[in-house]
Design a binder for these strands. Structure first.
Length: 364
DNA sequence: AACGCGGGGAG
DNA sequence: CTCCCAGCGTT
């Protein structure tokens, strides 16, 4: 596109956005902190999922200082069920830096802001353009999909080569005078019109510029590298009852589901029964001898790189005191107090069954 | 450059 | 069920 076409592209995009943009809670604020929180949540996560979390998080942590001083447990509880918990841990750490080093003001300099934990090129460009009107083009999944179609760009969007290619394209198209509006308009077109499946080209404000639309080649873009098949892992977990309480353990602070609480258990070995694995894992992980009383339920859950089938057992404590090998903390809790602890989604799927069964199950 | 990291929606 | 989606940090 020449400069005249680029101007028209920018104008049509923003005119459309003025009329068709969704009403979203983070579009009613100019507070850089709130926009930052929204962008962290929106990373890898769809708008409709984020909305209730955003309201609760902002109500609980309305400003940087409060978040900076909060306990890790409280921050994770606010994030419970949203996934990618490193986002919450990094946001928490970053808030402490903003509070202490920048007096609570979110830095508006690229180097300063993107040096914060969890702030990369996307969140950097999004927050600096939307909150501070700095001319950085966002390049997220929506933008890459739209640009791949408009320019029939065969660069795989999920490969490392795509980084520079789509970055250069996005930079060349950015409206330097209104970068925040322009960036949001382009992403909104990706979300509402130029969708992954069944794009609504007739309603698209930039369809006249789009080579994919003109040539009928949309179904070939964006191109992507094949993903690897995900293995399925069987897990046994035990709800260990003792004196009307149950045992939960806390995962180490980093890595998968870092810092969350769960019922102890682990992988079922090849050729091993689920019950045996449950007894073995609990002996190894928390040092307790238990008996398996009943099979409560089976839960299937998909992660990014593997799937699990979780066999959940009701168990009774026989003897031994808790000696942790893996987990970093433990509690004997009343089942109704589980709400106070952040737990993984896979655990949330069977906890309601525990509460319903409480009278018969916790009859000590 | 490749991998680890959750969860939700569409079909 | 299966397939699709996707920024940042670590290695």
């Amino acid at each position: 596109m020449d400069s005249k076409e680029i101007s028209a592209f920018q104008q049509q995009l923003q005119d459309w956005y003025g009329i068709n943009q969704r009403e979203l809670p983070w579009r009613h604020t100019t507070d850089p902190y709130r926009i930052w929180v929204s962008e962290v949540m929106l990373q890898q996560t769809q708008v409709n999922t984020v909305i209730p979390y955003y309201y609760r998080f902002i109500e609980r942590f309305p400003e940087v200082a409060g978040l900076a001083r909060a306990r890790s447990q409280a921050v994770l509880k606010s994030w419970e069920g949203l996934g990618y918990y490193a986002r919450a841990r990094n946001l928490h750490k970053a808030a402490a830096v903003v509070d202490s080093r920048y007096g609570g003001r979110v830095p508006d300099d690229w180097q300063d802001f993107t040096a914060l934990p969890g702030v990369g090129p996307y969140i950097g460009a999004a927050v600096l353009s939307i909150a501070y009107s700095h001319p950085y083009a966002v390049v997220d999944g929506n933008v890459k999909r739209v640009l791949a179609r408009v320019f029939e760009d065969p660069t795989p969007v999920n490969g490392s080569a795509g980084h520079g290619a789509f970055r250069r394209l996005a930079d060349s198209l950015l409206d330097q005078s209104r970068p925040g509006i322009y960036n949001q308009a382009l992403m909104e077109v990706g979300a509402l019109v130029c969708k992954p499946a069944n794009p609504r080209c007739a309603d698209c404000p930039i369809n006249t510029f789009c080579l994919g639309n003109r040539h009928g080649s949309l179904d070939r873009y964006p191109q992507r590298n094949k993903r690897k098949p995900v293995p399925e892992i069987r897990i046994a977990a035990g709800v260990i009852r003792r004196n009307g309480r149950v045992l939960i353990t806390r995962r180490k602070p980093e890595g998968l589901l870092g810092g969350l609480w769960e019922f102890p258990g682990g992988k079922i070995h090849e050729g091993e029964s689920a019950e045996t694995a449950c007894r073995r894992e609990i002996k190894e992980e928390v040092g307790l001898n238990i008996v398996v009383d009943a099979h409560l339920t089976q839960v299937r859950h998909a992660y990014t790189h593997f799937k699990i089938v979780l066999e959940v057992f009701l168990c009774d404590h026989v003897d031994g005191n808790v000696r942790l090998n893996g987990p970093v903390d433990h509690r004997w809790i009343k089942i109704e107090d589980i709400d106070q602890y952040p737990v993984p989604r896979a655990n949330l799927k069977f906890i309601p069954k525990l509460r319903v069964k409480k009278p018969e199950v916790f009859n000590e």
